[in-house]
Amino acid sequence: MRQLEAFTLGKKFGHPEANEDSLVIMPNLGYAVIDGVTDRNGTRYGGMLSGQFASRTVKRAVEEFLLAQGQPDRPELQFQGGEHFVDYLGKAIYQGYVQNDAVAAVEADWKLRGGCTVMAALLINDRLEVVAVGDSGIRINGADTLQVLKPLDDVTAILRREAWHYFCAQGLTPEECDAQAMAMTWQGTRNQVEGTPTADGAVIETIEARALKACREHLPDVPEDEILLLVQHGIAHGQGNFQNVTDPVLGYGGIDGFAVPARYVETRSYALGDIETIELFSDGYFKLGDGFGVAAWERAFAEVEAEDIHKIGRYMSTKGTTETQLTDDRSYLGVRLK
């Protein structure tokens, strides 16, 4: 290894301890970026919100796995492919539920589970083995990029964008638009708090219609019932119905202590001798850096913020940057081998 650069920052201003991203940095063994899923309801395990708990648990599990490589007394932890590795990470989270007496609760209600994505680059003998679940990314040699973004996020991002524009047209300030659009996106149109602006029947009808129309145009192959489920029940009440199941078109994978279908486990294998640079990043970066290193990626981040701070334009998202927090936690890890 000739050079290593790493950066991570939580989205909440003044609260770096709330960062749900984790980094694994083990030179000559492997690297990973892990992104904890934002908690839906304040569930805590080991004093941490569920997404941070999942992220930190998987971080420790990856480190243990890498340290065990080549040890004959740890055959169960030798690399046997991406699905085996992901299964091992899921079992680590499940064991965390056991330790917190939460197995019955999480088996009965997906909203109580902790979850995370992982992008791992494992140096196994003379190979670079890449294993990924979710939407964190990797760029090899500055050109070969793997990042699996989920169309499901486009549905809730469109809902948020349409709600934002609706309230803006009513004369609300950008801060008020952020708050009302987030209420719609997080809870869904059918779970709004009585008496609030987003609970008005006419408002709901208008925003639902606009979101459905825009989603049909953007995702013409997605069944309308899947779109409606997300629009009406949002991230907090609807999204989990699509995780780690294969029947829905909008299905996606996440590590949450339960089985991850093989279709959501992405793998790549490279001859280690061909690798010059490895760059891993979480989805808090909406634009790739124009070169290797933290400075290049932070320039890209600043460009996105300057162009679309509310994330309702080219970089539409389920959240935007506000006075209290950035759109998302972000992490970058770059390793130059040659």
Rank of each mutant, 00 (worst) to 15 (best):
R113F: 09
Q71W: 04
K319H: 14
F7A: 10
T318Q: 03
D178G: 02
I138D: 00
A108Y: 12
I312N: 03
I255D: 03
K287N: 08
R139V: 13
Y88I: 04
I227F: 03
A296D: 06
E17P: 02
T196I: 11
V203W: 06
G42A: 04
D178C: 03
E279Q: 12
T156E: 09
L23C: 01
Q187H: 15
Q80F: 07
S22W: 05
R216Y: 05
A209D: 12
K12M: 14
R2H: 10
V193T: 12
F301T: 03
G82H: 01
A306E: 12
T173Q: 14
Q180T: 05
V203G: 01
A61C: 00
F286L: 14
I227M: 14
Y45G: 06
L67K: 15
V133T: 12
Q3M: 10
G195V: 06
D328G: 03
E266C: 11
Q243V: 14
N41Q: 02
F65R: 03
L288H: 06
V62M: 07
R299W: 04
V260K: 00
K150Y: 08
L288A: 12
D39L: 13
H310Q: 15
F281S: 04
R336S: 10
G36M: 11
L228D: 08
P197L: 12
V231L: 15
K287H: 10
A104S: 15
G81M: 12
E162I: 09
D283K: 10
L333M: 13
I312D: 01
S22F: 07
H15L: 12
Q180W: 07
R216F: 08
L112S: 11
D329C: 00
G234C: 07
N100K: 11
A202V: 11
I93R: 13
V58C: 08
G42Y: 13
Y31A: 11
Q192L: 11
Y166R: 05
D329F: 00
G320L: 04
P151L: 13
T321M: 05
A236Y: 02
L152D: 03
G251C: 09
F53H: 01
G320C: 00
G114V: 08
R127G: 05
V98S: 08
V118G: 01
R56D: 02
F7Y: 15
W186C: 04
A163R: 00
L212N: 05
Y97L: 02
F286N: 03
G137C: 12
A214S: 11
G238S: 09
F85M: 01
N244Q: 10
L66P: 01
G134F: 07
Q78I: 11
M119D: 05
L89D: 04
E83F: 06
V335E: 03
Y252D: 08
T185G: 02
A32R: 00
V148M: 11
Q3S: 15
P151N: 15
G81V: 05
S136C: 15
T145Y: 11
V62Y: 01
E63F: 05
E298V: 08
M1P: 10
A104Q: 14
Q243R: 14
G47E: 01
V33N: 04
G188I: 06
D290L: 07
